[in-house]
């Protein structure tokens, strides 16, 4: 476990009232926005369990929408986000006890489904993207890609990262079946330059690649 620092305790500077239900919600929205990394026209949020039951009283719905629109956790505009949001949005509320108490599915432009949990004290975890399990907490700059499962992909991608002398803090991959669609992500100690993303894009059978900046 990462040792807590001064600003893990005296922080974040945030919009109230709850670090898990408000700041966490905003950060989940911000992460989803960073992962999608394209213009957003419509979003469908499905809130689960405690997020669904007490979310309204905590502004969880406002926080999720504010995050999707790129507002930071300390942006006072969050309070009135419904009157300034210029995208289509809908909220569903469900109970599913197999999910984390503070959990949400975020469907963007009907083409990407991102799920995440708010795990306490404003910290969050993106748990799946389009059905692939991931574990992104926003603590590192991350490169995320989807590709055809075949030999040699990991070494090709890691070589591109290594050529820029960026240290890899952690790495994970998953696939829906042998030879099927696979996902891979690298947590990095430095922000990757755009040329890394472009080089990865040029590898055969890479369907999708994006970089997700770490959350402030």
């Amino acid at each position: 476990m990462k040792q807590k620092g001064l600003f893990d305790v005296i922080s974040p500077i945030m919009i109230g009232p709850s670090s898990s239900h408000t700041a966490g919600a905003i950060r989940l929205g911000l992460m989803a926005r960073a992962i999608y990394n394209n213009s957003i026209n419509c979003v469908e949020f499905t809130l689960y369990n405690s997020f669904a039951q007490t979310g309204k009283g905590h502004g969880t719905d406002k926080g999720l929408l504010a995050g999707i629109l790129g507002h930071r956790v300390d942006d006072v505009k969050t309070k009135n986000i419904f009157s300034i949001a210029d995208i289509e949005y809908v909220f569903n509320y469900k109970e599913d006890l197999s999910r984390h108490p503070n959990s949400v599915d975020i469907k963007i432009n009907n083409e990407m489904m991102i799920s995440g949990d708010s795990i306490g004290a404003g910290e969050i975890k993106i748990t799946s993207i389009n059905g692939f399990s991931v574990n992104l907490a926003g603590q590192y700059h991350t490169i995320l890609l989807m590709y055809k499962d075949k030999p040699g992909m990991i070494s090709q991608v890691s070589k591109i990262i290594q050529d820029k002398s960026i240290n890899i803090a952690s790495f994970h991959c998953d696939r829906d079946g042998k030879g099927g669609t696979a996902s891979m992500y690298f947590a990095l100690d430095a922000e990757p330059v755009d040329s890394i993303i472009n080089d990865i894009k040029r590898i055969d059978d890479v369907y999708f690649v994006t970089k997700v900046r770490k959350l402030d």
Partner: peptide, 18 residues
């Protein structure tokens, strides 16, 4: 009270104890 009306606060250590 600023915290509960969605004002800006410093969580210290949490929002409910700010």
């Amino acid at each position: 009270e600023e915290n509960l009306r969605m004002g800006k606060v410093v969580a210290c250590p949490t929002a409910g104890s700010c």
